[in-house]
Design a protein around this nucleic acid. Structure first.
Length: 242
DNA sequence: ATCTATTCCTGGCTGC
DNA sequence: TGCAGCCAGGAATAGA
C-alpha cells in the first residue's frame, strides 16, 4: 500500500526516466513532461500545461518494465517509454487538472507549522494523522511506526501530544523509509519491479504478539476507527483524561 | 467539528 | 481439491 515513501520512490524513478519527454496520448498529448513530483501519497505528472494526479489507493502501481501484468487499467505513452497504471483492487484514481485536496506534505512541512496545527485539534491522534486533509502522506503502516517510535498512544487527543517531537520523529522515519525504497509488505513494487526494504525495519506494524524491542512487552493489536492498529501497551500509555 | 458506518474491490488466507 | 467466508484498507459519502 503506497504511502509517502513508496510514492517518493515511484516519483523519483519516473522523473529520472521520463523528464523532458513528450507524452503522445491522453489529453496532454504533445506536451513535454516537466517533472514527476509527489505530494503526500499522490504522484504528480507535471506537463507544460496540464497536470495528472495519480492516487494509488491500495494496490496502484506505475510500471516502466514490460513484464506481463493482468491488472493494467491505463497507459501513458511517451516518446521512448510507456508507463502502465496497474491496480488490482481499483481503489486508485487518475485525475487530470484537479486541485490537490489535501493538507501540507508531512515530510517537507515546517516542524513549527505541524506543531501549531496539532495543538488546536481535539481528535484522536491516529485518525487525525491518517486524514489526508490534515497532513498528507501517512497511511496505516507509517502511522503505527511513528506512534510507536514517538511513544504516543493512538487514541491520545492530538492537542495533548508534543507536536515538535512527533514531527521530528516523523521526518526521521520517512527519511529512513525513503532511503530504503519504501516498504514492501505484500505487493509494493517500484516502476522497475523492485521491492522496498524498509519492512525489515518495522517495529510495530504487523508485529502483534512479538516482544517490544524497547521493553519486551508483547505488542498488541486493536481497532482504531476500523483500522488495525499495532502498539506497545507499555511504551504507548494513554495519558490524561479519557 | 468530530464521530461512526458503509461502499468500493479482489487476492489471499483459513477452515471445513 | 474445492469452496465459502472473511480480511486487508484509502478515500468518499451519509448521517448522527
Amino acid at each position: 500500500m503506497p504511502e509517502l515513501p513508496e510514492a517518493e520512490t515511484i516519483a523519483r524513478a519516473l522523473d529520472a526516466h521520463l523528464q523532458g519527454q513528450r507524452i503522445t496520448n491522453t489529453l496532454a498529448a504533445g506536451q513535454r513532461l516537466e517533472r514527476v513530483a509527489r505530494h503526500g501519497k499522490i504522484v504528480l505528472f507535471e506537463f507544460e500545461r496540464d497536470r495528472l494526479q495519480v492516487r494509488l489507493g491500495m494496490t496502484g502501481a506505475l510500471l516502466l518494465h514490460d513484464r506481463p501484468d493482468a491488472y493494467v487499467r491505463d497507459e501513458l505513452r511517451f516518446e521512448s517509454a510507456t508507463v502502465r497504471y496497474s491496480d488490482i483492487r481499483r481503489f486508485g484514481r487518475l485525475l487530470w487538472n484537479q486541485p490537490l485536496r489535501v493538507g501540507p506534505d508531512i515530510w517537507t512541512m515546517a516542524t513549527e507549522q505541524f506543531a501549531s496545527l496539532l495543538a488546536t485539534r481535539k481528535r484522536q491522534i491516529k485518525p487525525l494523522l491518517l486524514d489526508q486533509s490534515f497532513v498528507a502522506g501517512l497511511g496505516n503502516i507509517y502511522v503505527d511506526e511513528l506512534l510507536y517510535r514517538a511513544r504516543v498512544h493512538p487514541l491520545q487527543i492530538a492537542s495533548g501530544v508534543e507536536g515538535v517531537a512527533l514531527h521530528r520523529e516523523a521526518v526521521s522515519l520517512l527519511n529512513e523509509a525513503v532511503a530504503a525504497g519504501g516498504s514492501t509488505i505484500s505487493d509494493f513494487r517500484d516502476p522497475w519491479d523492485r521491492s522496498g526494504t524498509f519492512q525489515l525495519h518495522h517495529q510495530a506494524y504487523g508485529k502483534t504478539g512479538q516482544p517490544c524491542r524497547r521493553c519486551g512487552t508483547i505488542l498488541v493489536r486493536l481497532l482504531v476507527g476500523q483500522r488495525g492498529t499495532h502498539l506497545c501497551p507499555r511504551c504507548q500509555r494513554l495519558r490524561g483524561a479519557h
